[in-house]
């Protein structure tokens, strides 16, 4: 299956699911246009566009791909992106458990270590950066701008 077709099928499934959800919306009988009216228009429009995308993707008259090789350069490093997403996911999950200061310290240290050169001699520098970032943002936002940062079970 081609990529755009795959995305299209997924989007059509979402449209179908949400359309079914609109049938469950309860609305007072006396109003001419209920709360399900607009979402349905949007869903039908989206489904129509997705069908267009699929048709275009499957059409034999697709734009020919250039024969020239892709621009020279390093291959995308998806491993690094995946690590960054996982570390960030851990940070977001950890914010509500251990609180902003602890979660932020470990996040800054963990992410900079995992996407950086991973040199042990760099570690003290990264620890200092993590401490400074955590302390500076905490002090600026909590003390001076009165923006209350996430509290955990401990702090």
């Amino acid at each position: 299956m081609r990529r755009d077709t795959g995305i299209g099928v997924g989007l059509l499934a979402i449209c179908g699911l949400l359309y079914w959800q609109t049938c469950l919306i309860s609305a007072p009988p006396f109003i001419p246009i209920g709360p399900a009216f607009y979402p349905r228009i949007v869903l039908i429009l989206l489904a129509g566009l997705v069908v267009w995308l699929i048709a275009k993707d499957l059409s034999p008259r697709r734009r020919p791909s250039p024969k020239t090789p892709k621009a020279a350069g390093p291959a995308p490093n998806y491993g690094k992106v995946l690590i960054a997403f996982i570390v960030f996911l851990g940070y977001v999950a950890g914010l509500g458990i251990v609180g902003y200061p602890i979660a932020t310290f470990f996040f800054v240290l963990g992410l900079s270590w995992s996407i950086g050169p991973r040199n042990v001699r760099e570690l003290p520098k990264l620890v200092v950066i993590a401490i400074v970032t955590t302390a500076a943002t905490y002090l600026i936002f909590e003390r001076y701008l009165y923006v209350f940062l996430p509290r955990g079970l401990l702090f």
């Binding site: 996040f107 800054v108 992410l111 900079s112 936002f141």
Partner: peptide, 25 residues
């Protein structure tokens, strides 16, 4: 590798501080 974590921390603060709820993050 130093900028990215700092930027993400500020993005998290920006999202959280809107209503002070973790769901925004």
């Amino acid at each position: 590798y130093i900028l990215a974590p700092i930027i993400l921390v500020l993005c998290v603060i920006g999202s959280f501080a809107l209503n002070n709820i973790i769901e925004n993050v």
